[in-house]
Amino acid sequence: MYIGDFKETYASDQAVFVNTTSRFWLGVLFVLLAVFPFVVGDYLLFMANLIGITIIGAVGLNILTGCAGQISLGHAAFIGVGGYTAAILSSRFNMPFLLCLPLSGCMSAAFGIIVGGPSLRLKGMYLCIATLSAQLILEFVFVHWESMTGGIRGINISPPQIFGVVLDNDFKFYFLTVTLVIICVTAARNLFRTRVGRAFIAIRDRDISAELMGISLLRYKTYAFAVSSFMAGLSGCLWVNFLKTVTPEHFPLLESVRYLAMIIVGGMGSILGSIFGAVFMTVVPEGIKSILGLLVSVFPNAMSFLFPLQQVIFGLLIVIFLVFEPHGLAEIWRRIKNYFHLWPFDH
C-alpha cells in the first residue's frame, strides 16, 4: 500500500515514476511485455504488432494535436510518406532496415515541416483545412506517381533484416516493435519534462501570451510538426515492413480521422492516453469483426455491415467521449488509480 512520499531532492520530486510502488508496476509491465510473445498465439502476436505500430503513430499525433494544439487531418498521409520512403529505399536501393527506419522518419518530418511551417500564420480551422489539402494531395501522389510508388498495385518488399536476423515472422517482429514503442514513448515523455514540451502546451493554451513569454512560435510549431511526423514516419516504416507491402489504400483520409479518434478517446495531450487510444481503437474493430463473425450463421450477410458499423462506432466514440469524457481514457484511468490510492483505507 502506498501511504506518502518523503523526498529529499528536486530530482526525486520530478521523477516520472515518483515512488517505489509505481516503479514496481513499471517493472511488472516490462516483464509482461517480455513474456508475452512466448505464451500467446499467432493472432495475438499479430495484434500486438499492429497495436505497437499504431501507438507510435498516435503518440506522434498527440504531441502535435493534443499537446501543441495544432489540429492535423493529414497524419495518415505522413505515415504514408514514411511507409513509401521505406519501401522505395529497401526495394530499389537494397538499403538495410536500420538505415531505412531513421530515413523514413526524416522524410516524413521534412514533409511535416513543409506543411506545418506556414502554420505559424494559419490558425484553427485554416490549419485544419491546409492539412486536409496535404492529405488529399499526398494521396493523389501515392496513386498517380506510378514510376515511384507503383500506383494502386503498390510495392512489395522483402522482410527486414537486423544484425543478420531476418524478421520474417510476427514473433521476431514483436521485439522490434516493442523496442521502438518504448523508445518513442520515453522520448515523448522526456520532451514534456523540459522547456520544449512546456512551450508546446503554452502554445496550445494561449499562443499569444506564449510569444510574449519568450517562446518563438515559428520554431516551436515547426518542432511540433517535425517530432510528430517523424514518429508518423517511423510508424509507417514499421507498418510497411510488417506487412511487407505498401498500397495507397492504407493511408486514406479516414485513417487520419481514425488517429484523431484515438487521441480523443485516449486523452488529448496525454502520452499515456495515446497508448490507451491506440489499443482501444485497434481492439474495438477486431471485436466488431468477431461479433459479426458469430452472427454470420444467423445473418449470412452480416459481414457486409463490418465497414459501416465500424464507421458508426468510430463516430459515436468521438462524439461520446468529447461530450461526456473530454479527457479520455487517461482521465478514467487516473480516477481508478486515485480510487485505489489508499484502498482499502480511503476514509
Binding site: 480551422m125 458499423l309 458508426v312 468510430f314 462524439v319 468529447l322
Partner: peptide, 13 residues
C-alpha cells in the same frame, strides 16, 4: 471540429 468529424463518420456509416 472533431465532434462534427465524428458526426460525419456516424452518418456515413
Amino acid at each position: 471540429i472533431m465532434v462534427t468529424i465524428g458526426l460525419s463518420s456516424i452518418l456515413l456509416g
